[in-house]
Design a protein around this nucleic acid. Structure first.
Lengths: 261, 261
DNA sequence: GCTCATTTGTTCGTATGTATC
DNA sequence: TGATACATACGAACAAATGAG
């Protein structure tokens, strides 16, 4: 016989307008554990049966909670194997931050990364604002160039709060060239990039931006300002990029409305 | 007692590797009805109980199908009222195609639309390619300017397949100024914009693009090529836009990974 | 290659809570 | 207040994928 949702809460635990659904308790509990780093991206979480026992709910309720988290992009499930913590949004499927193509139906060529410099103790008003830093806090700045074959295409500066990324300056430069920055951040600091916001504008190259991109002054460049967000929409990276778009244009995959659920 | 999924299919209908889940049959059936226009955006579809009877499945199975469609963005459900067909992606929440801001945390001011011209029988190689037209097919071209107060910000040409939008040329120009184009297309031709793709580049203004945007030649402009997709990813509009970004930058809401489910 | 235990996927049925009109 | 419709919750059974033996 099916029990009512309030049956297990005793006489005083009757449902009211502000009552929280039990699957949401499971969902929030698991989400917190992931955010605290108890489960890292790639880890398998307990099975439905174990979770049902842990939280004192039915398997169906656990299933509801896990499916919500799948739709949020926090988990993925594999039949016969288990449920796993997902990592950064970028890198799933064909999703890539920089994706240059000739047309909508074009396949893109991956870009080669070249590390230029890492600065410590950086202060920058705009970057500090978007990263919501307290006054006086400093940042790392990582400069890189992305090239398409021999042609430099993107010149980018990434700003990261120094407080969150202790020891970053001790990494060898290869660390920044062999894998994308978001993956390094995810693996080493357990901060997956779950969402990001962007602002686009067009600017003219000058004496500073011209040489790294091998274009003369007065050349039109696409400027992208990107803010990467992790758990609870915490900003973890602010990136400013300048792109040559004379050979290929920047492509964006279809947008989907964020599901508020 | 619970019946097995194959129980109702008789002895010959045993499940095999290629068997399709029953909730998917409901999902596909409803999706087809929506695509055929039997249910238009805003319409209420039958209740769970009615659908269960119609498709010969349990209410729970119907629920699974409807929740999938909610996550696809095709439906939204309101407790106590029913399930409703959703319209275009754009216009939901704060989502807007053109969204110019000073910074990530900035509120934007809506843009005023000014209709310039509607051309009939247009041929354009690039546009025809993205819209997947048969050779010889013609398009409408609608030119508009979006302004922020007195300052023109976006100059845009929209290409629409003439075959899909019969009678568009007979609409008064007010029709293109009082409501967004995607809404006109959705309401009048029952083609909601469900997804869109974009390509970004930077160009210099010339004699043609300078005057409408009130900028001198050689001014950096953000170029956006947008392809709007409706049901079954059918392209319904190709739009080419040039934007001034000297006062405000183009903002894009967070991307979410497309749910393949 | 086969069997078996494990784990998620699908389906049914039922009961009750909550929002809407 | 009652009828209706969606939301939450439980339990049971079988299907399908995975991996170990």
């Amino acid at each position: 016989m099916a029990r009512s949702p309030s049956a297990r809460r005793g006489a005083a635990g009757r449902r009211n307008a502000r009552a929280i659904a039990r699957y949401r308790l499971v969902q929030d509990g698991l989400t917190n554990r992931i955010e605290k780093g108890e489960y890292a991206p790639g880890d398998r979480i307990p099975t439905e049966k174990e979770l049902a026992r842990l939280y004192g709910v039915s398997v169906g309720t656990v299933k509801t909670a896990l499916l919500q988290m799948v739709h949020q992009g926090l988990l993925h499930r594999i039949q016969g194997k288990g449920s796993f913590v997902s990592g950064s949004l970028i890198g799933r499927d064909q999703l890539r931050l920089y994706h240059f193509v000739e047309g909508f139906d074009d396949d893109d060529a991956p870009l080669q990364v070249r590390f230029l410099a890492l600065h410590v103790g950086v202060r920058d008003l705009a970057a500090a604002r978007w990263l919501r830093l307290k006054s006086g806090e400093t940042m790392f700045r990582i400069d890189r160039v992305f090239a398409m074959g021999a042609t430099p295409v993107v010149w980018t500066s990434s700003f990261l709060p120094q407080r969150l990324f202790a020891g970053l300056e001790q990494l060898p430069r290869e660390a920044f060239e062999t894998k994308p920055l978001y993956r390094l951040v995810e693996e080493r600091y357990r901060l997956p990039t779950l969402r990001y916001q962007e602002m686009f504008s067009a600017v003219l190259s000058d004496g500073e931006s011209g040489p790294p991109l091998a274009v003369p002054a007065g050349f039109p460049l696409l400027q992208i300002e990107m803010l990467a967000l992790s758990f609870r929409d915490r900003p973890i990276e602010y990136r400013q990029s300048l792109c040559r778009t004379d050979r290929a244009r920047l492509f964006r995959l279809p947008l989907r409305a964020p599901s508020s659920a």
